[in-house]
Write a protein that binds this DNA or RNA. Structure first.
Length: 169
DNA sequence: CCAGTGATCAGG
DNA sequence: CTGATCACTGGA
């Protein structure tokens, strides 16, 4: 099922849940196209969210998060792992959803390796990319929620909020 | 448990 | 320019 612009212009927590069981379709370019269901996501809720990169305001890196939902936000962590995020929400509201797991790859750094994604995807729009797209889930996803990973520095309130969503069925 | 690895950002 | 930090992973 094709998705539209409005789907991505929702708040990050809603989008993170709705992305579960959606299919990432990746065209690798040499005639190879593969698709993987999304199994785990995390929501980052804008400047007030202490765990969100945009909590530091606009910088060269966070600029893309201020774009309209549907753009891709890629960044390198620990010098080796590319993180794949989908910007969500209205223009100038810097929210995003981190793709933490897909079938065949658990972990945000592992899945970008599998999907061969790096900084060249940054700021591409998921609806207008020739290399990657997302198809809607067939059925309503069932999920559990949990605190986000690796953000203990964000203070108890933001570190404890259950903004991580794991597909159950 | 802990090291690898390099972009990014705040501060001089 | 410098130094600290980091939404992770893989191997003791």
């Amino acid at each position: 099922m094709e998705l539209d612009r409005d789907f991505f212009i929702q708040d990050a927590a809603t989008l993170a849940k709705k992305l579960l069981a959606c299919k990432i379709v990746r065209d690798f370019g040499n005639g190879i196209i593969k698709s993987y269901a999304i199994t785990e996501t995390e929501a980052y809720l804008g400047e007030q969210d202490k765990a969100c990169h945009a909590s530091k305001g606009r910088t060269k890196r966070t600029e893309v998060m201020y774009l309209e939902g549907g753009h891709i936000y890629m960044y390198l962590i620990y010098g080796m792992y590319w993180m794949f995020n989908i910007v969500s929400g209205e223009l100038n509201l810097p929210q995003a959803v981190l793709i933490r797991g897909i079938e065949c790859a658990d972990g945000p750094g592992k899945l970008t390796r599998l999907l061969k994604m790096d900084k060249t995807f940054n700021a591409e729009h998921i609806l207008y990319s020739s290399r990657i797209k997302i198809l809607g889930a067939e059925k309503k996803a069932e999920y559990i929620s949990a605190p986000r990973v690796g953000i203990d520095y964000a203070g108890t309130y933001w570190a404890k909020r259950k903004l991580r969503y794991i597909l159950v069925r």
